[in-house]
């Protein structure tokens, strides 16, 4: 039973991350590899504020998305002029810089050792220290993110984002200052990812720089593309598949590290095969 709640918590966290990635990459066609960076920023904000300043996780759940959003706003604004491949390269740069800072700013991040002992959330007199109770908070946050994602997709804003994915130059002709749209969705996506990061840090009670690498971002790509880009439901389906796979592998009897590598192999190959044979993913609505 405990195990099922554990899976549900992981699913909620990756569901949030995949939804955020989908808004930016699937909805807007903006290829970013900084997903893991904002996820990591959320996790590190939680770790630092909770262990060094004694903040409660509930307060951090409010502040971390704002901090990540602010950073994303500044980063996104300075990347506004880059298009396509170059935007991707710039976000890759940002991810590497985040990683280096996490490894080296030892006063705050403890460097490569990471930060341990992150507390569990405490709410209305209860500590959510069991998977059974933590899962309630995780699913609650997931529902918020799902709701907001759906509202965004159905708003005029969401429609304009889709049009940016289809033909940004043509959309500009019709009076859209597309860079503002891209900046805004980049910021929103970062804020969501940070929520996932806070949940992760508080659940695992430990963060270190190796959790937030390029591979983690590529995993998010695979989730979004597998489910079908541009669809919120697709992101959730993709997250479901790629969270379950290593658990199944472990269940069959592969050691944890090997199962991790097998998953990495699977999502790497998935990206290749999907793009070749099924670029619209499982839901099959849009392609990049």
């Amino acid at each position: 039973m405990e195990y099922i709640f554990h899976i549900l918590i992981l699913l909620s966290i990756y569901g949030i991350l995949a939804l955020a990635q989908n808004l930016v990459m699937g909805g807007t066609g903006l290829l970013t590899i900084a997903g893991a960076a904002f996820y990591g920023i959320g996790a590190y904000v939680a770790a630092i504020l909770a262990t060094k300043f004694g903040w409660s996780i509930m307060a951090i759940l409010l502040i971390a998305p704002i901090i990540a959003g602010l950073i994303a706003f500044l980063v996104g604004a300075s990347f506004a002029r880059f298009r396509d491949d170059y935007f991707m390269l710039a976000t890759l740069g940002f991810l590497m810089i985040f990683n280096t800072v996490a490894k080296n700013w030892e006063t705050f991040t403890n460097g490569s050792f990471g930060i341990a002992g992150i507390p569990k959330p405490y709410i209305l007199g209860f500590t959510l220290d069991m998977p059974m109770t933590f899962v309630v908070l995780a699913i609650f946050i997931l529902i918020i993110v799902v709701t907001v994602s759906y509202l965004i997709s159905r708003s005029s804003f969401g429609r304009a984002l889709n049009a940016i994915r289809e033909d940004e130059d043509a959309l500009q002709i019709f009076g859209y200052q597309t860079s503002r749209y891209k900046l805004m969705i980049f910021t929103i996506g970062a804020a969501f990812s940070a929520l996932g990061g806070v949940l992760f840090a508080s659940y695992i009670t430990f963060v270190d720089p190796n959790l937030f690498t390029v591979n983690e971002s590529i995993l998010l790509w695979a989730m979004v593309i597998l489910g079908g880009i541009g669809r919120n439901r697709g992101a959730l389906i993709g997250a479901l598949f790629l969270v379950i796979i290593p658990e199944i592998l472990r269940f069959i009897g592969f050691p944890t590290e090997f199962a991790g590598l097998m998953r990495q192999c699977i999502y790497g190959l998935l990206l290749v095969l999907l793009m070749l044979y099924q670029p619209r993913g499982i839901l099959g609505t849009y392609k990049l």
């Binding site: 491949d85 590529i218 590598l261 990495q264 192999c265 999502y267 790497g268 998935l270 990206l271 290749v272």
Partner: peptide, 28 residues
């Protein structure tokens, strides 16, 4: 993919996927 006139983004994603899979296989 190039013959299908795939966007550069698609090629980028694919090449990332290939590298990820290769390094995982060699790791195994």
């Amino acid at each position: 993919l190039i013959e299908r006139k795939a966007k550069n983004l698609v090629l980028l994603i694919v090449s990332f996927g290939l590298l990820t899979a290769t390094s995982a296989i060699l790791g195994m």
